[in-house]
Design a protein around this nucleic acid. Structure first.
Lengths: 112, 112
DNA sequence: GACACATGTAAGGTTTTTCTTACACCGGAC
DNA sequence: GTCCGGTGTAAGAAAAACCTTACATGTGTC
C-alpha cells in the first residue's frame, strides 16, 4: 500500500502542511469522508476564506484533493477529501531523504 | 517498542519542528550518532547561532537531547543526539489526536 | 427584484519564524 | 598576556505565515 517513498521536497511540504493545528483538524475531519467547504468551515468554527487558504496549502502538499460538483438543485459545491497518505517519521528515514532535499548541494565544503 | 502515542500538542510540536529543511538535515546528521555543535555547524555549513536556535527548537519538541561534557583537555563541548522517535502520520492517526489538541474545545459546534 | 447559500480572491495588518551580526564567557596553548 | 576553539545569548532586520474584512461571481427560491 505504501505507494512510494517521498522525496525530501515532498516530505518537507507534507510536514510543513501538517505543522498547524487548524490543518490537523481539517485532516481529522476529512478522515471519515469527504465534505464541502462551507459546511466544513461551520463544523470547524473558522471563516471560509481561512479554511480556503488552509485547504489550498494541504492540496499543494498532496494531502487533500478537491472536486467541484453540481448538486441536484444546481448549487456548485466543492468537496474535499483526504488522500491516503502514510508517512513514517524516524531519524533514519529522515537521514535517507536528506540528500534529495533542494539545495542540498549548497552546503559545499570550504572551496575557498 | 512504540513508547506511547503522542498527544495532539506533542505531535504538533514535532511536526512544526520538522517542517524545516535545516532541521531535517540536522536530524539526518545526528541519525548516525552524536556530534557537538561547532563541528556540526561546519559540517552543515551554517552559523553556530543559527544551528543553536534550530537545536533548541528540536530539543523543545523532544526530537534531540543535548549534553554538556568536558573533554580530556578541559574544553566544554555540547553533544547532541537524536532521540528515537517514530511517528506514523496518516489521516486516521491525525483524527485520533485532534481531540487532544489545545483549544480544541474552542470551535465546538452547538452541542444542543 | 431581494434573499440565501454556495464559490473564489484580493488587500491589508498582525504575528511568528528565520537569520545575521555582535557581544559575553571559559580553558588550554604559545 | 594573546590567541584559539569551545560555549551561550541578545538585538534587530528580513521574510514568511496567518487571519480578517471586503468584494466578486453564480444559482435557486420567495
Amino acid at each position: 500500500m505504501t505507494a512510494r517513498e517521498p522525496t525530501g521536497a515532498e516530505l518537507l511540504a507534507a510536514l510543513s502542511a501538517l505543522a498547524n493545528a487548524h490543518r490537523l483538524r481539517i485532516i481529522g475531519a476529512l478522515a471519515d469522508g469527504r465534505q464541502y467547504v462551507s459546511l466544513l468551515a461551520r463544523e470547524l468554527g473558522m471563516s471560509r476564506p481561512l479554511l480556503h487558504m488552509h485547504l489550498q496549502r494541504l492540496q499543494a502538499a498532496g494531502l487533500v484533493t478537491g472536486e467541484l460538483e453540481l448538486t441536484a438543485d444546481g448549487k456548485a459545491v466543492k468537496y474535499f477529501e483526504a488522500t491516503e497518505f502514510a508517512f513514517s517519521i524516524t531519524p533514519q528515514a529522515i537521514k535517507e531523504i536528506v540528500p534529495t532535499l533542494p539545495e542540498s548541494a549548497k552546503g559545499r565544503d570550504t572551496d575557498s
